[in-house]
């Protein structure tokens, strides 16, 4: 036991050091209250750019999360049920974007989405479509970022869905097939309900990640055009950069509250339907 205490103690200490930030923040709020009360929160909520950033983040999450989940699930089902060979190759290929640095990926996508010399519009041009100035137009900038985020993140969901699919007992499928259920009915009535915990997990982690999206607008658009892609995290970072630590801290709490609420909401929605 004593040995254990000595072994554990330095670890505890470093753990404590690395965790005190979470404790410190609890100390920080009363600290702020003493001086300006909820002033920072009021200031954040009254700031039109912050509201704009919140709306952008909501757009990103509301469109991006379902899209990412759908693509991930589709890929997982195709790999699990549709094919028998080369599974590892596809899996590896689809997963590759996940491990790459968002910064590097964002730099590359900026080229691909360039209006004239970019790959995307060149390919669209082959089909006679005049592609837009993806990152330069207010209505296209956010969809471009969502597309890129989906491309980068669906691999994680796919891997987890694959593991979930493999835990669905094949005997259930066969029984349903004998009862005359077609592939779609089997998926919808058997696989999908059994996959619900996995779905919950993937949608919660994806939403938490997307609610904090930062690198994409930072590198690709700097939040523009006309603040149409500025995100909550990015605006918080900007305020931090201006030295408004208190305000930035208040903003990060607001993001945290939103994350907590969204997570709780997802738990309710996906649990209740069972």
């Amino acid at each position: 036991m004593l040995f254990a205490a000595f072994t554990v103690w330095p670890v505890l200490q470093s753990l404590f050091m690395s965790f005190t930030d979470t404790k410190e923040k609890d100390l920080r709020t009363p600290f702020a209250v003493n001086f300006i009360g909820l002033g920072n929160y009021a200031r954040a909520l009254g700031d039109p750019t912050f509201v704009k950033a919140a709306a952008n983040t909501a757009y990103f999450v509301v469109v991006g999360v379902p899209l990412t989940l759908a693509v991930a699930l589709l890929a997982a089902v195709a790999l699990d049920k549709g094919i028998t060979r080369l599974r590892a190759v596809y899996r590896l290929g689809f997963y590759t974007p996940v491990i790459t640095s968002i910064v590097a990926v964002a730099v590359v996508w900026r080229f691909i989405l360039q209006p004239d010399s970019g790959l995307a519009n060149t390919v669209l041009g082959w089909f006679g479509i005049q592609g837009p100035n993806w990152l330069g137009e207010v209505q296209w900038a956010m969809p471009s970022l969502i597309l890129m985020a989906t491309w980068r993140n669906f691999g994680t969901g796919m891997i987890i869905f694959l593991a979930g699919l493999q835990s669905v007992p094949p005997s259930l499928q066969e029984a349903a097939a004998i009862d005359g259920a077609n592939a779609w009915q089997r998926f919808w009535n058997i696989t999908f309900p059994l996959l619900r915990p996995t779905l919950l997990f993937v949608s919660v982690t994806t939403a938490i990640g997307y609610l904090q999206f930062f690198e994409e607008p930072f590198v690709m658009t700097s939040g523009g055009p006309l603040n149409s892609t500025i995100s909550l995290s990015m605006y918080t970072y900007n305020q931090f950069g201006y030295g408004n630590y208190g305000l930035a801290a208040a903003m990060s709490y607001l993001i945290f509250v939103v994350i907590a609420v969204v997570t709780a909401l997802q738990f309710r929605l996906l649990r209740e339907n069972t």
Partner: peptide
């Protein structure tokens, strides 16, 4: 419980206090 609790707290929240430390 502390470990599990901090696991759920996103990085944004700890960012500013961590910087101060």
């Amino acid at each position: 419980l502390v470990v599990l609790g901090t696991l759920m707290i996103p990085g944004v929240v700890t960012f500013v206090p961590l910087f101060v430390i």
